[in-house]
C-alpha cells in the first residue's frame, strides 16, 4: 500500500538532526514483508559510545544492518553523519558478527585487517607496503602484532574478534557499527576491546555497539538504545537506565505486535509507505 497515506502525511522532509552521528526517522524493517522492527525514531549524537540493548529477536542486528543498507527497509529514512549512506560510506566502519564468516578461509590475520583498507586502496590497485604497515599498527593496537601472519582459523575466538576490530580500526571511520563484539570472548579480550572502543570515543568518533550483556552495559557505555521490536527508550545512560525502561524492554515479547507482523507478512501488505 505505497501511496494511500500521502493525503495525511504531507511531503515535508523528515527532520533529521544534522549534528547527530546517526539519525533514524520512522524506519520499519521487514523480512519477507514481515515487519520485525517498527517505527524506529532516534538520534545518537557524535562522540558517544552507544549500546543497542534488547532481548533476543528484538531487532538489534537488524537495526545496524538497516543503517548500512544491508537489509531493505520498508519505510523511513536514515542519515549517517548528517548525510545519506552513499555520501559518507568511506567514513563508516563495520564489525559483523563473528559467526557470519568462514574462519577456515585461506587468509592471514594481516590480510583480513587489510580488507578494511580496500575502499581506500580502490579498484585495480593492490595492497602495498604502507597499507600493510597501517594494518600492522591496527593489529598492534588490539594486541595481536605477534599473530599477523597466522592463518585465521588458528586464532582463538577472542583473537578472531580482535582481528575484526583491527579491520574496523584501520578504516579510520568516524562512525562505527559493531555487531556483538563482546559475544563469547575471554576476559582479556573484553578488556582490550573496551579499551580500544573508549580510545575511539575519546578521539571524537562515534561507536554503536550491539550488546547482549546487561551486567556490563552501565559501566561500558555512555549512550543507550533499548529495543524490543520497537524503540523502548534512547538517550544518555543516566536518563535511560531506569527499572521501568528495562522492564519494558525485557518484560516479555509483544506477542500481538508480532502476530500482526506475521499477518502482514502472509497478507503481503508489509510494504507500506515505500
Amino acid at each position: 500500500m505505497p501511496v494511500h497515506h500521502r493525503h495525511r502525511n504531507p511531503p515535508i522532509g523528515p527532520e533529521h538532526d544534522p549534528q547527530a552521528a546517526l539519525s533514524i526517522h520512522d524506519v520499519t524493517v521487514a523480512y519477507h514483508r514481515r515487519p520485525v522492527l517498527w517505527d524506529l525514531d532516534l538520534d545518537i549524537p557524535r562522540g558517544v559510545l552507544a549500546a543497542v540493548v534488547g532481548p533476543n529477536g528484538a531487532g538489534k542486528s537488524t537495526m545496524i544492518k538497516a543503517c548500512l543498507d544491508l537489509v531493505p527497509r520498508v519505510s523511513g529514512s536514515i542519515r549517517l553523519l548528517g548525510d545519506e549512506l552513499a555520501a559518507v560510506q568511506g567514513r563508516i566502519g563495520y564489525v559483523p558478527q563473528r559467526e557470519t564468516v568462514d574462519w577456515d578461509f585461506p587468509v592471514s590475520a594481516l590480510d583480513v585487517v587489510c580488507m578494511g583498507l580496500y575502499r581506500k586502496i580502490g579498484w585495480f590497485r593492490s595492497v602495498r607496503r604502507r597499507h600493510r604497515n597501517a594494518a600492522m599498527e591496527a593489529l598492534d593496537r588490539v594486541g595481536l602484532a605477534d599473530f599477523a601472519g597466522r592463518q585465521i582459523s588458528r586464532l582463538s575466538g577472542g583473537q578472531q574478534q580482535r582481528v575484526f576490530l583491527a579491520r574496523a580500526l584501520v578504516q579510520e571511520a568516524d562512525l562505527y557499527f559493531m555487531d556483538e563484539p563482546f559475544a563469547s570472548v575471554d576476559a582479556a579480550t573484553e578488556e582490550a576491546i573496551l579499551e580500544v572502543l573508549r580510545s575511539l570515543r575519546d578521539a571524537g568518533r562515534t561507536v554503536i555497539v550491539v550488546h547482549h550483556d546487561l551486567q556490563t552495559t552501565r559501566d561500558y557505555f555512555d549512550w543507550l538504545v533499548l529495543l524490543n521490536t520497537r524503540l523502548v527508550a534512547a538517550g544518555s545512560i543516566e536518563e535511560t537506565w531506569t527499572p521501568e525502561n528495562l522492564r519494558a524492554t525485557y518484560g516479555g515479547r509483544l506477542t500481538l505486535l508480532e502476530a500482526a507482523g506475521w499477518a502482514m507478512g502472509t497478507a503481503g501488505s508489509g510494504q507500506r509507505r515505500s
Binding site: 544492518k65 559483523p96 580496500y118 585495480f124 590497485r125
Partner: peptide, 22 residues
C-alpha cells in the same frame, strides 16, 4: 588478477564488502 582483492573480500565476508560500498 585485476579483481583479486575484491574477490577475496567477496568470498570471505560479503556483508563487510557491502558495508564498504562494494
Amino acid at each position: 588478477v585485476l579483481f583479486f582483492k575484491e574477490f577475496r573480500l567477496l568470498c570471505f565476508d560479503d556483508a563487510f564488502a557491502a558495508s564498504l560500498g562494494r
